[in-house]
Each structure stands twice: as structure tokens, then as C-alpha cells.
Design a protein around this nucleic acid. Structure first.
Length: 490
RNA sequence: CGGGGCGUAGCACAGCCUGGUAGUGCGCUCGGUUUGGGACCGAGAGGCCGCAAGUUCGAAUCUUGCCGCCCCGACCA
């Protein structure tokens, strides 16, 4: 393993891959397109899960679990949904193997063909709405506010660690409501939770908006999303919340009796956020020294490293470190004291930087004499000597400051790389340089497709928050009600 | 499925053109010297050179076939 990482500015995608591997987040598996999430990477994912789960529970949602397999007939029921997912499904056709009659190994037992093929879920709307049919009879049964944490499979042609894998982990929420308004409110609420998670926990600013019809989730009436900017200026869709109208209720015949004693189809939403966020986390903050983690998601927030020559020195330092360690732990800080003797301190400095640990405390004999500790920040790579007295309070404040600092840095980057563009020539020139382009669009799928074809830029979203200033489409010159966000995307 | 590239130690690669003892760096093991930013020296362990057939006295190297992987497109969160 070489020591230096590739430079972010020179080869962004190689830099990304190296960080994912060397920070010990994940690796490619022997199974095509699938990924092994390693313990350190999974620990970050668990922190994400916890944060989201708390927000879901606080808004009245409950967790449940639905089957991995979707009968093909389920998937067929909602036409657009079927069409959207058909091309990327793993299909189970048999349920048994047998030893090869002509030699070694195993073959599929032809007599074990399934009457109906099973699809490994690419998403669970169909199984869940088939189930909801049995749960919903009256307006009193509504709303149903359910989330599940699970894995899904989408057989992508080309994959990248975290950003696009054949199998990925996510949460998918599926709610049923008595009224259109209530379902729409839920859709917005969950989008808000995703935005709060991205900004408050991941320290990653996002644009909230609506997808254009061509980018909409298959089977949805309206798709809302959060879009983030990565450090190469490309966009990453980071979470989606769909208003499904009555589409799935109609496909699965889910009716209830309303307060007026009339039969009505239920209103639905679904919303999801995946391990792709791990990729976003890497690409949003990291630098040429490795991963940079926001303190709120860091499995280790503070690492303490002793600097010593002899075992006696180490014992003396450890004696001083122990109370600090205990006090930090008691203050709710996740702290590690690395007194392992098989690596030198310099090696440890580099290693914990690579892994994105927000704060490093270094203690050597010199510090013991002076009653100080060296405090190193991962976000800006600065070091300062601090009195040991009051260090716990200092660390707690510093963790908050780092969280805020990396958010502000990412926000500043996005602002500096967001451009208001009014002419087609400017558009073509700017898209090559990266970033978000705020431009007018005439609202037609044709124009959207042509722009994509000529520049590889897609409409990331129609922002929810914007000044509603009318103008002329950057491509056709036709009327436009407001600017939309264009970018190249992952 | 189209275009390009690569399969040699755990990892990254050289050797192949011009056939003749299997190499280098990192990592690993042991010993010593070191230790405030990824230490140094010495000794070791580790190979069906992707698989199969062919040519040859002799193949990592030449020929043919197969298999696998990566990159660029199409697909997509």
C-alpha cells in the first residue's frame, strides 16, 4: 500500500476510491457489483441510521419488515412502476440445485422451476401495498406510517463503491393516508427531515426541490429530492420523497370508507435514503489527507495518542491520560486512547487523519512537564497547545465548532460554484467548468432532453425555495416561470 | 451489448519484443537501532506466471482457444 493518496484536484474519482478503501469504509466483493461495507464504514452508517430513525420516530413513524421477494405479478400491477424497474431486476426462477449428473459441481434442478418468478426487491411499494390492502378498511385505520430498513437490488450495468452498487442498504418509508392533503404534507415533512439530516448531521448543504417528470420516480405523481454538490462540482441526489397519489392504491385495490361513508382509494407516499449517503459524505468534505468526518457522525470523535520513547514514559503518560479519557467518555464524547506499541506516533497521526477522526489529542513527556496537551483539528489541520486543565470542555466546544465549520465550508463552496446563466453559449461554457447552473427552462421534456444530449447536464430539481422571477428559456427562448438547477450528476 | 486495456507473491508492478535458475517495491515474520508527522539496518517466509491445448530439447515469454477483471459508452440513486 502506497503512502500518499492521489490528489483530489488531479484525479477526483481515483481519490474517492482510494479514500473509501484506505479509510477502511468498504471494498469490492467477489460478487459482481456488490460491496463489502467494513466495520468502520458500517459504524458511520449506524450513526446515520440512528439519527434518521430518531427523526422518524419523533414524527410518529414505526419500523416494520416486508419480504425480500416480490412476485412478478405484483411488480406488473402499476404500469409505470413496472416499466421503470423492469430493466434492472434480479429474478429467481428456481428453488433448488442438484449435483451435476455429467460431472462435478451443481446445476439448477429443472424440475424445481417456480410457477411464478420472484423478483428480488428493487424497492418495496408493490409488496407493501399488497399488504396494506388487508390493513385498510376504514378512515380509522389511517394513516399508516411505516418505515423499513433493508437491502434492495438494482442490477446496474456499472457500479461504484457506495454511489452505485448492485445491492445497497437503505430505509424506505411507505405511508397511507385518508386525504390527498395529508399525503402531500407527509411528502414535504419527510423531505424536510432528509434536508435536516443532510445539513445538521452530515454538514452537507442541500437544495430541496421537485424532479421534472422525466426524472420522476416510476409510479409517482410528484418526486421531491435533496441535491448536494460534491467537491468536483457535480451533483448528487441524496434522498427522495415521493407523493404517489392514489396510483398504488388503485393498482392494488386499497379502498377505505371515509367519514361520509363513501369508498375511496388511499393516498400514498414513499421516501428513501441509502448508503449512497456514505459516498456523499466522503465526496463532500474529504481532502488530500483522507476522510473528514462531521463530529456528529464520527464513530471516534477524539483519539488520544501518547508520544513516548520508553515503556516507563508510556506508563507515566497513560496515568495522566486515563482521567481525561474517563471524563471525556462521561461527557458523552466517543474517545479512543491508542496506546498500542506496534506503530509509531507519526504513523498513528497519519492513520487517524485518513480515517477522518475530528480531534486528535497528543500527549508527550514535554506536555506532562508543561501541563499541556496538543490539540489537532482534522477539518483545518491546525494544531495548538492547550492546558490539560479544562480540556474536556474545550474538546466539547471544538467538536461543535468543527461540525459548524465543515458545513459552512461546504456551503461556501456550493455558493461559489453556483452560477446564474442566461445564454446558451454561457451555459455550454459553464457546464464544462462544473457546478450548479441556475437557468430558465421552458418546461418541456424535449428541451430537457436536448440539453442533456448536448451537455450531459440534467435538471437536478426545480427548487422549492427561490425567487419566482419569470424569464426566457436558456435553450429555446420560450417563457419560463422560474430558474431550475442544472448540473452534471453522479 | 459495442470500443479499449489487463491477468506474474497479500497489494502495486517489472520481466515477454529476442524462449534457458521467478524478480522489484510495499506489506508480513524475527532480531537490533530508533521514536514530537507514515523510521532505518540485517535476516527470513511467501509463486500451478488466469485456465487449457499446441510448437519446442526447453514456455511467464511464441501460437490458438477459453475464462476472469478493469476503464470508456448505453442503463441508473
Amino acid at each position: 500500500m502506497s503512502k500518499a493518496l492521489p490528489k483530489r484536484s488531479e484525479n477526483y474519482s481515483e481519490w474517492y476510491n482510494e479514500i473509501v478503501k484506505r479509510a477502511d469504509l468498504a471494498e469490492n466483493s467477489a460478487v459482481r457489483g456488490c460491496m463489502v461495507i467494513k466495520p468502520y464504514g458500517y459504524a458511520i452508517w449506524e450513526k446515520m441510521q440512528r439519527a434518521l430513525d430518531d427523526m422518524f420516530k419523533a414524527t410518529g413513524h414505526q419500523n416494520a419488515y416486508f419480504p425480500l421477494f416480490v412476485p412478478k405479478s405484483f411488480l406488473e400491477k402499476e404500469e409505470e412502476h413496472a416499466e421503470g424497474f423492469a430493466k434492472e431486476c434480479a429474478v429467481v426462477t428456481h428453488y433448488r440445485l442438484m449435483s451435476n449428473p455429467n460431472g462435478k459441481g451443481l446445476v439448477v434442478d429443472p424440475s424445481a422451476k417456480l410457477e411464478e418468478e420472484l423478483i428480488v426487491r428493487p424497492t418495496s411499494e408493490t409488496v407493501i401495498w399488497n399488504t396494506y390492502k388487508g390493513w385498510i378498511q376504514s378512515w380509522r385505520d389511517l394513516p399508516i406510517l411505516v418505515n423499513q430498513w433493508c437491502n434492495v437490488v438494482r442490477w446496474e450495468m456499472r457500479t461504484r463503491l457506495f454511489l452505485r452498487t448492485a445491492e445497497f442498504l437503505w430505509q424506505e418509508g411507505h405511508t397511507a393516508h385518508a386525504t390527498e392533503q395529508e399525503a402531500m404534507d407527509e411528502t414535504h415533512q419527510m423531505l424536510g427531515i432528509y434536508a435536516e439530516f443532510a445539513e445538521g448531521w452530515m454538514a452537507m448543504p442541500v437544495v430541496q426541490g421537485i424532479k421534472t417528470p422525466s426524472e420522476r420516480f416510476a409510479g409517482a405523481v410528484e418526486t421531491f429530492c435533496i441535491e448536494a454538490m460534491m467537491q468536483d462540482g457535480k451533483a448528487l441526489q441524496s434522498g427522495t420523497s415521493h407523493f404517489l397519489g392514489q396510483n398504488f392504491a388503485k393498482s392494488f385495490d386499497v379502498k377505505f370508507v371515509n367519514k361520509e361513508n363513501q369508498l375511496e382509494f388511499a393516498w400514498a407516499t414513499s421516501w428513501g435514503l441509502s448508503t449512497r449517503m456514505m459516498g456523499a459524505l466522503v465526496m463532500a468534505h474529504s481532502d488530500d489527507n483522507g476522510l473528514v468526518l462531521p463530529p456528529k457522525l464520527a464513530p471516534i470523535q477524539v483519539v488520544i495518542i501518547p508520544i513516548y520513547k520508553t515503556p516507563e514514559d508510556l506508563a507515566t503518560i497513560s496515568e495522566k491520560v486515563n482521567p481525561i479519557f474517563e471524563e471525556l467518555k462521561a461527557a458523552g464524547v466517543s474517545v479512543k486512547y491508542d496506546d498500542s506499541d506496534h506503530q509509531r506516533s507519526g504513523w498513528k497521526f497519519a492513520e487517524y487523519e485518513l480515517r477522518g477522526v475530528p480531534i486528535r489529542l497528543g500527549l508527550g513527556m514535554r506536555d506532562l512537564e508543561n501541563g499541556t496537551v496538543e490539540v489537532a483539528r482534522r477539518d483545518n489541520l491546525t494544531k495548538e497547545s492547550q492546558p490539560i486543565e479544562g480540556i474536556v470542555q474545550h474538546v466539547k466546544l471544538l467538536l461543535d465548532e468543527i461540525q459548524e465549520n465543515i458545513y459552512n465550508r461546504a456551503l461556501k463552496f456550493r455558493e461559489e460554484n453556483t452560477f446564474i446563466v442566461d445564454t446558451w453559449d454561457d451555459f455550454k461554457a459553464q457546464i464544462e467548468k462544473g457546478g450548479f447552473i441556475m437557468a430558465h427552462w421552458d418546461g418541456t421534456a424535449e428541451t430537457e432532453a436536448k440539453i442533456k444530449e448536448e451537455t450531459k447536464a440534467t435538471i437536478r430539481c426545480i427548487p422549492l425555495l427561490s425567487d419566482e422571477m419569470a424569464g426566457k428559456c436558456v435553450y429555446t427562448g420560450n417563457e419560463s416561470a422560474k430558474r431550475v438547477v442544472f448540473a452534471r450528476a453522479y
